[in-house]
Nucleic acid binder design. Structure first.
Lengths: 240, 240, 240, 240
DNA sequence: CATGAATGAGCTTTCATTCAT
DNA sequence: CATGAATGAAAGCTCATTCAT
């Protein structure tokens, strides 16, 4: 990683807010398209496999610009990581949950997570790359902490509500529940190729996806509910 | 991948069984140490990051030998994949379960899977690499099918036994259960670096590992048990 | 080197002498700090090793300004050469010698040269760079001749005086004497690193420097004096 | 600089002496031609200016071979430095001096040094490059000490002999004398381009060279002789 | 069987320079 | 005047692979 770490934040001399000129907008666009391309390329080929040239070409820019805006390939990778986390948190923040209905809300969370992972395979792929490199880059990111999962907080609120309504067991932590949900979604998405090969079926088929989500829903609910839910699950809520 | 240069299986598979000469044993040793080194290096650096030179050096051999024994870097990768699957299956085969005691057996399976993933991080890392490359290599492996998970069969027997004893629900498939168990173990191991960073705790600490296993045990059991188990879970077994 | 982009001499050389405006003074300052930075950077890294970016950064300015004021990197290098020569001549001009006392004056010249080289290592380093490039740039400099050594003239006067006083041999040319003096000072400074390594001593230690100067003084004096000076040398002067 | 520092010494497993095979000889030739080319290219363009490609091409080989044999560009530079020192020492060792005739021997040494520098401009140029880089590489060379100047020892013997014969002053050290001789030869050669420009004459003209040598001879002799030599110098010897 | 030597494509990065406000 | 953005060539170095004993 470059020692100057001169990642350029694109203009914005942080002086008085003024309308960005045409050049600044173009620069912003260049930077963003490089970042977008980096996410795609790194996700498909990993940190080593994704060359700066591939990224630059995908962004219809030049290698040199990566160094201009991000300093180095590794710093670009860090920026890509930060960006996918940012996007995930943004999506999570749009989740509209009703704390008064903890079972439905929990189902919504499970759906959200599984759905997000499936629709954003780069998120999963980039995290895998980062873990291959033992978390080396995320440790260097100053913003890493900012993005530290609000999901746990959300689940905590749900759990509390469920417990107070006598629906949920009091001895399940939000952290564990979060990991369980993430695990079911992540593993299915991350390992879909090897799993498909070894199970002899296509895990990306819509029915397979739907089936897995309903199974995950049930596993999660059974883990937290005081009483096991009937097959459909809806009844359990009604029973309250 | 060159398809002409067939991976050499070390000396004579043909011909009558005879004691291997010193030459053959040495060759066997070279091949094996290359394979072992490849697993380590690929696990640590991925398919692209792990260069043939690194592997050859780690095996105290020469680049050339990789081509001699395996044909190409990619074929070596395939061999590495096959080898880790073989090892996993071998370990799984050593699992000694009592079908008459399905709850305990299921706990044993969960323990085995989580423990194996943790003790063999190369297994997880290599699978991640293979999935990054969209299962390209495992599809080419002739032996892949052979290694196709006996675990599902094992779980199937357990489930049947549990159902017949009135302990387990009849509507849980072995395949789903297998994925659930694998997911809890795999995700925790695979993502331990990013998770540690974002949760602000060390997932590799012994207490953390133990805690996660007992949580996973409970989640799995609650998913299959007709009646929810008491906190400890042991009582549920006793109740039978 | 682009010959169309003429090096800018900062604002108006033409036109009637008038007080420079604030704009011009700022420009002058930018130009000068670039030049100063260039001398430092070229001296430390050579013509190839010293990048325009390094120079611009060292001057807290921008790459672009180098092209604005100097036309190209090579022209900046020429300007740097001219500047160090200018400085050297300026310092030389401040030498206040008494032609009536040729021995002491000669000692003063030796001291001046050795001292100047030591205190201005960029002078020596830049000349080395220029000689590495076979004098390519100095040949292109129009001002080069202007700076052509007044030192020879100075020595010539001294020698004449010494000869007429019967102290100096009549058959020593100022040019040769100049080269001898410069050689002793230049070589010691220029090669201090390799010499220190091979002699196993630190040539930059104050005692080493002092010792070398007194040796150089003696060698120079013995070369020109009719009679060899006594060890101290002071006596020889007194003897006159 | 590579951390493995795997500079290959070309085969020679230091086992029993056997005739080198045709391949080993070819390898030796490749290595040597790369080294020779490196000396030429580094001398002409410096460490930064001399690219590995230029060197490889000059040696009719490939960039890759430089890394194969020397590990890195910098290690090749170190090897080049060692080689020119080795050559210089070798030449010096061929000097056949008669200690009984110190004046003539001293003249022979002066001639040798000036002549060697002139005929081997790469020696001077490479040392300049190394000094530009503050002796960074020679410090890393293990062999550096081996090549540490035997010249001083040679001069010491000469001085002792001269002193015992009453010809030389007893208070001149071999080290100082060596520096004086080297300085006259080195400076003239190293700075011939800028000096030619500023003196307005060609320092490489045969007469100029000859004139400088005889001046250097005289300066050196006058520095060590008890009595100043007559213009020709030969008489001084005859006087003994 | 084993191994040193060779090869060319590709990698990340830095360079000097020009463009467009 | 000053400056951020862009550009293409070239740098040092590593890669997977093949050749020749």
């Amino acid at each position: 990683m470059s020692n100057s770490t001169a990642a350029r934040a694109v203009a914005s001399r942080s002086g008085p807010r003024r309308k960005p000129g045409v050049r600044e907008r173009a620069a912003q666009a260049t930077r963003e398209s490089l970042l977008r391309a980096a996410i795609k390329v790194f996700a498909r080929h990993g940190l080593h496999g994704g060359s700066v040239e591939k990224i630059a070409k995908a962004a219809r820019s030049y290698d040199r610009m990566i160094y201009y805006y991000f300093g180095s390939k590794e710093e670009l990778f860090v920026a890509a990581l930060e960006e996918i986390y940012r996007r995930f948190n943004e999506a999570e923040a749009r989740l509209d949950l009703d704390p008064a209905r903890p079972v439905e809300s929990l189902r919504a969370v499970v759906h959200f997570v599984l759905d997000y992972y499936r629709r954003n395979p780069e998120f999963v792929a980039l995290l895998n790359s980062e873990n291959l490199h033992r978390g080396r880059h995320i440790g260097k990111s100053l913003r890493a902490r900012e993005y530290s999962s609000p999901a746990v907080g959300i689940l905590d609120a749900l759990l509390r509500s469920g417990v107070s309504q006598g629906l949920f067991r009091p001895d399940v932590s939000a952290r564990d529940l979060y990991l369980l949900i993430a695990a079911t979604g992540y593993f299915y998405q991350s390992n879909r190729f090897t799993l498909s090969a070894f199970l002899g079926e296509d895990l990306e088929a819509p029915e397979a996806i739907e089936h897995w989500e309903s199974f995950a829903q049930e596993a999660v609910l059974r883990t937290v509910l005081v009483a096991a839910p009937p097959p459909d699950g809806a009844a359990a809520v009604a029973a309250v």
